[in-house]
Amino acid sequence: MSGNRLYPERPMLAASVAVLRGDRILLAARARPPLDHIWSLPGGLVEPGETLAEAALRELKEETGVEAQMIGLIRPIEYIDRDPEGRIRHHFVICAHAARWLAGEGEITAEALAIRWAREDEVADQPTTPGLLPVLEMAFAIGREAGGALTSS
């Protein structure tokens, strides 16, 4: 994907996915800046010709080895980071999705320093990317609405 992620000319479009597996959700500790070593959802930039859902599932597979099936769009998250002079260093619009787990335990990769399947009550005490907690709450709610559609293991 072309385009400068650092000091971009315009916001970068990205997609992420909250994968639900029974009463747990997949979190990955980011391996790259910005916000490296912080728990987040797998995701990345949308490539030309990809839908948001396709991008989220591709990034999930590349970053963690996990496969999932989409069950809903959660909401967009905006991440805007300014340098000490006030210039925009990063600007991402990330469309977060909810999905149900199909396969894979999660693998550490160049994108993910660590993987964990966390229960809803375990997330609040963890260092997470800005805006992630409300997204996870919505993902768990979508999962509860889907009921029997979630696979537990």
Rank of each mutant, 00 (worst) to 15 (best):
R21Q: 13
P42C: 09
L113V: 06
S153D: 10
R144D: 02
L20H: 07
H91Q: 13
T64S: 15
P8I: 06
E122F: 02
L27S: 11
A124F: 02
G148W: 00
T51K: 01
R58L: 07
G43M: 08
M1S: 13
N4A: 13
Q69Y: 00
A124Y: 02
E107D: 14
R87S: 04
M12D: 06
E145S: 12
P84M: 05
D121V: 01
G22H: 05
I71T: 09
P127A: 08
A139L: 08
V123W: 06
A124D: 13
R58Y: 07
D36F: 03
V135C: 09
E67G: 07
A149M: 10
A112S: 15
V19S: 13
S40T: 15
A31E: 02
L133M: 02
E107N: 13
E78A: 08
I38Y: 04
L41T: 09
L57N: 06
R58A: 07
P33K: 11
E145F: 05
E145Q: 12
F92W: 12
R116Y: 07
Y7R: 10
V123T: 10
L35Q: 11
I94L: 03
R144E: 07
G72H: 06
R116L: 13
L113P: 00
I38D: 01
E9W: 04
G147W: 00
A149H: 11
R119I: 00
A114K: 14
I88Q: 05
E9S: 14
E107R: 15
R89K: 15
H90D: 15
A110Y: 00
D81Q: 12
S40C: 10
I94W: 00
R75C: 09
S152W: 01
H97M: 14
I80R: 15
E59D: 09
G86F: 00
A29L: 03
G131D: 04
W117Q: 12
L45G: 08
G22V: 06
V93F: 03
G143Y: 07
G44Q: 09
R89V: 00
E105K: 07
L133K: 07
T128G: 06
G143M: 06
L13V: 02
H90M: 07
L133P: 01
P76D: 11
L6H: 14
E50N: 05
E120G: 00
V135A: 12
A149E: 13
E85S: 10
G3L: 12
Q69T: 13
L20R: 09
E54S: 08
L6G: 05
R87Y: 01
A96S: 15
K61Q: 15
R82I: 02
A110M: 00
